[in-house]
Design a protein around this nucleic acid. Structure first.
Lengths: 120, 120, 120, 120
DNA sequence: GTGGTCTAGACCACC
DNA sequence: GTGGTCTAGACCACA
């Protein structure tokens, strides 16, 4: 996993977990990788992973069993979907619309690019 | 002009200038508002405007005439378009595609939302 | 480190780093002194150091690890050499040639002066 | 005449006059171009020319006949030579020596480049 | 009037 | 601890 420099690492880790929940790799009740192994795997400071997991816990996507680790909550899928949906509607979509207008891009071109994207 | 809190003000000023170049309000050879007046207008510190203008100069979008001010370069439109286009292809679009896939959104919904957006 | 008054301090700091790269004191991967300690050491405002480091980053000579500091890039030597070489060919050398022509200085005198310079 | 952006325009005008004195185009007693025509010719603000001429006057290279214009002094060649020589020894030469050392350039290469320069 | 630079100091996000 | 950004205000050189 490589970190784009323009976004906080802990947020990128959060997103990584969220994606795995939405695409079904992580299911309610699953234990997620412990902090230290995850830090080693991602080559980041353990504190950074702590921050990501705390954030996920605050959002209600994971919960903590003392001494055992972090687990996906029952509501994780719903919460994640809601969280991501808001982000999409309030941030991704406006940015996207503004850009295609400014760059004078025809909407059909996007459709073409999307079809290409799905093939890969 | 109101500033979104999650992005550096000087970048928002840069984007503001870029938009005015792309939509034709600013043309090659035009003088852009001087640093101090712009700072007053936007209610920010002059240093913040300096930073924006320096950035635009480094990018080749404006140039400086000693003691006279900043002017739009001949290539400004091309450079701005290229700069914004790269941002779109490498950042906006991937984020967008990833989101609609994860959220399982049908592409036609987007088309509908876009038509609504254009009416406003 | 004393600053010549006729050149911006932040440029002098940039040159100072560049020299240390070219003479091998700083090698790729090395961490350079953090902003605040460097500011204390050079007795300048931290902002001035920030400016120097940002400049070096834009040029590709150093890169930043979030929250850790600035590090010399792998290509630093090549870039620095190229940067300094261009400066030499396009600025230093023409100035030099023009001067010895205008002042009617024999090239051999320069050789003598250079030998003296190298002894010190 | 094109102005390099890294040096004050008025200094470049001064240098331009100095060169013409040293290479014999301007001789003691000659009248130099009046301020306004010179400003038009160089496409600069008349004030900038004023500044250059004042500088030359302070240095003793030109003198002013009220209402008639600026004229080259008798001592102009000597003064100009001295002025340029100091600049050469205290600024050009040290910069030059430092650069060839840092870039590890052999002195003989310079000789070659100089011979090429003189052919043009 | 214009920009260029610097200081002093603050707050914040992040590792 | 690290950098990133911003404010407030100053001084200077230049056109």
């Amino acid at each position: 996993m490589e970190f784009e420099s323009n976004q906080a690492i802990y947020i990128q880790i959060v997103d990584y977990i969220c994606e795995n929940i939405l695409n079904g790799n992580l299911k309610p009740g699953d234990k997620i990788t412990a902090i230290r192994p995850m830090a080693v795997k991602l080559e980041v400071n353990p504190n950074t992973v702590v921050r990501s997991y705390s954030f996920l816990q605050d959002t209600g996507i994971v919960y903590n069993k003392r001494g055992l680790g972090y687990y996906i909550t029952e509501d994780a899928v719903v919460i994640t979907k809601k969280y991501k949906r808001e982000e999409f509607l309030h941030s991704t979509l406006p940015t996207f619309f503004k850009a295609i207008d400014l760059l004078n891009i025809d909407f059909n071109e996007i459709k073409t690019l999307y079809d290409q994207y799905k093939k890969n």
